[in-house]
Design a binder for these strands. Structure first.
Lengths: 243, 243
DNA sequence: CGAAGGATTGAGGAGTCTCAAGTCGAGTGG
DNA sequence: CCACTCGACTTGAGACTCCTCAATCCTTCG
């Protein structure tokens, strides 16, 4: 959609502005160069394009360079379930590591680009570069931690809680990338939000409307401004399932 | 509680009857011996004993030898949330990899024992034994996959679906260990189940009672016999959130 | 401009939570 | 050996949240 100063196809890992978030953290310059050689860049995707399909052989993980993705699991009866959203600097595709086949389909939410990191080469390289192995363990650990956080959230049924959590999650991930923590665009549709949080699209709309009216956020379509972040945080922790 | 033929403290990884489930799969004999030397056995725990606490420095992952555990995340306001159940052969403790601190507390559900695998030594060894690295990537990938499966489930709010899922999950994990897939004891309390699935204890009780009356299962306290596994499976996939 | 998809808003109903009794079983102590 | 207590579980009735169904509005795009 718009050009990103430092994320053109030619940029290497050492100069990528997402470096701190992505793989190469805490690697020596020489190590980065080695990693650089296995990473395949480019691959621009349009909205609704699929990065990989559920059932595809697992060959690589992907780092989001620009844009955003959702991952969708399709159950046996054809039901779709959004299992995650991925913003720039985040890694997706790890759902295929266990079985060597992807269990989700990854879909671009807008015009997006990724770095493709072939997994067998990453494994080989990890043997040579212990820091890289450690880093990748951490990235997988982070995925586990965030999945479990979501499990905690979904177990507490309250539409307000769930919605507040998602807003704060995006806010926090934005600020990690040096973007505004209080003002952003939601890249996904209401139906994706609802599917992800286990709510209907109508409930999502109502909750957002309620947040808007009570002065928690400003809302115009997908554009969100967080006005009272403390109250939002209070909503997330203030569950109702406390025994 | 009772003696397990092959899981005494002296057993080494090569002879452990859980071998196929635990780390050492597809390792050469010599590699197994190396792994064997870093694994610390013993550590019997009584019911309600904690294996590690949320906030503890992350030093090791643990393989369940016998018994069972639950992991609990405690949110800022003291609310507890059950994030997982772990049966023999399964690995827990990976919640600490990302931040070097455990985010959950692990609690024994009954008299249990574990193998402790110091993580820095595992990392070192993984550099020397590529198969071990691969294996551990897979184990973490499996954790990610199962967490995402749970996310899918929790997003579809139906008490029957959730309960059926848990029963089938335990059934399937039992059969992987060579135990009965249709008859087992639930090691956890109703309150743990409810907390885990995002239901109240009353609803758990009612759903189990309903399953019992309709001939899906036989139920006596914690003892469960699955009578109509196909219908249970139908309940899990037959969601109601289909658009 | 009209169509189509996404989002909002409204009314009614189903399912689960809350609150409250009541049952069952295990462990304790007289 | 039995009464007692305590915790875990079961069962019931009413309230509330969210889902379902339906109409309308808005935006986008041909």
């Amino acid at each position: 959609m718009k050009a990103h100063c430092n994320t053109g196809s030619q940029v290497n890992c050492g100069e990528c502005r997402l470096g701190d978030l992505c793989l190469p953290i805490s690697l020596l310059r020489n190590d980065i160069n080695q990693l650089d050689q296995i990473v395949q860049r480019g691959r621009p995707l349009q909205k609704s394009d699929k990065l990989y399909f559920a059932g595809d052989a697992f060959r690589a993980v992907f780092a989001v360079r620009s844009g955003s993705f959702k991952t969708v699991a399709v159950s046996t009866d054809g039901e779709e379930q959004v299992t995650g959203f991925y913003l720039p600097g985040e890694i997706l595709g790890m759902d295929g590591i266990a079985t060597n086949n992807h269990t989700n389909t990854a879909i671009a939410l807008e015009t997006s680009s990724v770095c493709e990191i072939p997994f067998n080469q990453l494994e080989d390289l990890s043997v040579k570069i212990p820091n890289l192995q450690r880093r990748f363990f951490q990235i997988m650990g982070k995925e586990i931690a965030s999945d479990q956080e979501l499990i905690s959230l979904l177990s507490k049924n309250s539409a307000d809680e769930k919605m507040a959590f998602l807003l704060l999650s995006i806010s926090q991930r934005n600020s990690q990338r040096g973007l505004s923590a209080t003002e952003f665009y939601l890249p996904m549709a209401r139906s994706d939000i609802g599917n992800y949080l286990g709510l209907t699209i109508e409930t999502v709309s109502r909750v957002l409307g309620r947040f808007h009216k009570s002065g928690l956020i400003a809302l115009d379509k997908k554009h969100v401004v967080i006005l009272d972040i403390d109250e939002l945080k209070r909503k997330v922790s203030g569950g109702k399932n406390t025994p």
